[in-house]
Design a protein around this nucleic acid. Sequence first.
DNA 1: CGGAATCCCCCACGATACTG
DNA 2: CAGTATCGTGGGGGATTCCG
Lengths: 132, 132
Amino acid sequence: MSQGNIDVPVQAVEVDPEKLDVCTVLEVINRISGKWAIGILLEATRGPVRFTELERSVEGISRRMLTLTLRNLERDGLLVRTVYPTVPPRVEYEATPMAKELYQSLNGLLGWAERHRDEIAAARVVYDAQAG
Amino acid sequence: MSQGNIDVPVQAVEVDPEKLDVCTVLEVINRISGKWAIGILLEATRGPVRFTELERSVEGISRRMLTLTLRNLERDGLLVRTVYPTVPPRVEYEATPMAKELYQSLNGLLGWAERHRDEIAAARVVYDAQAG
DNA sequence: CGGAATCCCCCACGATACTG
DNA sequence: CAGTATCGTGGGGGATTCCG
């Protein structure tokens, strides 16, 4: 809900599609396209965060999916898992610099989404109206 | 300047995660996270393209998924479908300005992916070595 | 040529329960 | 507190067939 003022240039610059490596982008998309990865990454980007904290702050996530998504992100080197051998156990997750940089790159997409949100919604209404 | 170029500044700039609206980004991700959307969008960004041309150029896609993905992209206003009432029928798809702008925004992700490809692969090897 | 219809499979995800 | 284990489901996607 906190859409910050992202300074995205509004004019549509002509871009060379040749430059876009589909496979490479697809890898990123797949990595973050899960239902929960982005939400988790967001929290872990603010600083170290515990399992239970994530369970509360990432709305709607189940314990199982939290674990699975955390494991995947850790495997890809986007999250670092730190276990403190205390009682009760304490485990913290934090985004790596690479993950923080990813978040930065996502800003471009965020800008696009915000700029065209209404346009897309309108397009759907029109499309659904004539066909269905 | 801020986006059209693949040459993304390499230093990891500190970014405020507050600015990222998870829901909004998620919508975009969902829209392009299909197995074929990006490939189709890429072709249609170069200019009008016919159904059969897409079937050939988007490697591995089935007739069914091509149709489905095209319908979804059209519904979201990312593609315009033009039917020429000739015999045999001729249908052309072209990316809308909005879709072309999306492609431009994807460049940020592309840059990230290219820069960290090896790092991710390495992280996986390490992870799989100790656990898996 | 450009689809639509049908059948099937797989796996991301949810719900629930148990544990060191 | 921070997880596993198990079962069940939905829908994304593949293969195939039919149609104007």
